[in-house]
Design a protein around this nucleic acid. Structure first.
Lengths: 211, 211
DNA sequence: GTCTATACCCAGATAGAC
DNA sequence: GTCTATCTGGGTATAGAC
């Protein structure tokens, strides 16, 4: 519905501004994820989204505001994925089986890799705790995830801890692009095989994708 | 020995160039850790080390070479800490007690936080896997740590995995500067209490330290 | 809403004196 | 070895047309 487009007289494609904003946000997520906040340029985001550089600046009011918007969207998607895992587990398994629940959360988390840059731009934000504007925002986001797992999902404290640790390792290995070395180094293959027991294809599909 | 300094006639302090290099490397570690590769400026490193900006550029041949030097030093120190943990455990505990060994490694790892920026600049490198020069270097470094834990320390595969995950979570929480919110949010305190059962003081000491 | 053109600043690197 | 001065490129943001 909101993705409806209208064709302009000249054959070019125009779209509703909310959709364009979503598109730019997605492009920004990818660019910030790959190069980090400081390494990313508003120009790279603009090119990835197919719009002009001054436009993306205007759209969000500045680079930093854009990054914070990416961060918020990312957190929403992660919490959403955890919520879905919770529902799914309630339907298909014993609600008290914590192992099954944790596994289900892990699967849904790995699926988030399909939204390219999502987990990486989050990780980039997490390393900017020293930044006076981004830092507080990032900390609040992390605690939001922590509390959701503890209070809404209802995992015991040590399980929350475990899930988070596993998540950070996944983010790191993805950030490293360790898949790129999977054919050259048995250690890389071993580690990735352990980390992605069921979903290795998700990772492999990220090797030679488009920019 | 190599830290001997000689006082110049004008009262200023000169030192051997290797020492100066080590000093700059340490400063660079802090700056890269706080702001990331792209966010860090050679000028900030120079000021932190008390030398001129062109000098640090010359000293390493460029910003990127300096970052790679920081990365190498960091990996050496981490492997060194693990080696010490291994020795310590062999002396004081049953060499086959994997739990004791893992715990000992964890303690030595947390001690590395005293070298400010060390674990963070490493983490920053790990998120730059997409960079054509830094990426391969960072991947090789990660696998070096992985292999050391597996082959030299002799941890079973699932333990290596666990130790790495825990390490990445520690790095993340430090990068977030989560300690800054420890008084304001019980969730922050809870998480940190779990993550640093014995060594919370190491973290707390990092709150209002010098720049 | 979206573009082109451009102002302005900042950072990495070089030249060259001491 | 180490500094000061400076060139140069590139990146954010603004002005203003369409």
């Amino acid at each position: 519905m909101s993705s409806m487009t209208t064709t302009a007289p000249d054959g070019g494609t125009r779209m509703r501004s909310e959709d364009r904003r979503a598109l730019v946000l997605e492009a920004a997520t990818r660019v910030f994820g790959e190069r980090g906040y400081h390494g990313a340029t508003t120009d790279a985001v603009a090119r990835a989204a197919g719009v002009s550089q001054p436009y993306v600046v205007r759209m969000f009011g500045g680079k930093e505001a854009m990054f914070l918007a990416v961060l918020d969207r990312t957190l929403d998607r992660i919490i959403g994925a955890f919520g879905e895992a919770l529902d799914e587990n309630r339907r298909t398994a014993d609600p008290d089986d914590v192992d099954a629940l944790a596994m289900c959360i892990g699967r849904n988390y790995v699926d988030l890799l399909r939204d390219r840059g999502l987990l990486l731009s989050l990780m980039q934000a997490f390393l900017l705790g020293a930044d006076p504007d981004i830092g507080p925002h990032a900390r609040a986001g992390f605690r939001r995830v922590y509390r959701y797992l503890r209070d809404e999902v209802g995992l015991p404290a040590d399980r929350v801890h475990e899930v988070l640790a596993q998540g950070m390792l996944i983010n790191t290995v993805v950030g490293l692009k360790m898949v790129d070395d999977i054919d050259d180094d048995p250690a890389a293959a071993e580690l990735l095989g352990q980390l992605f027991p069921t979903k290795l294809e998700v990772l492999l599909s990220m090797r030679e994708s488009a920019s």
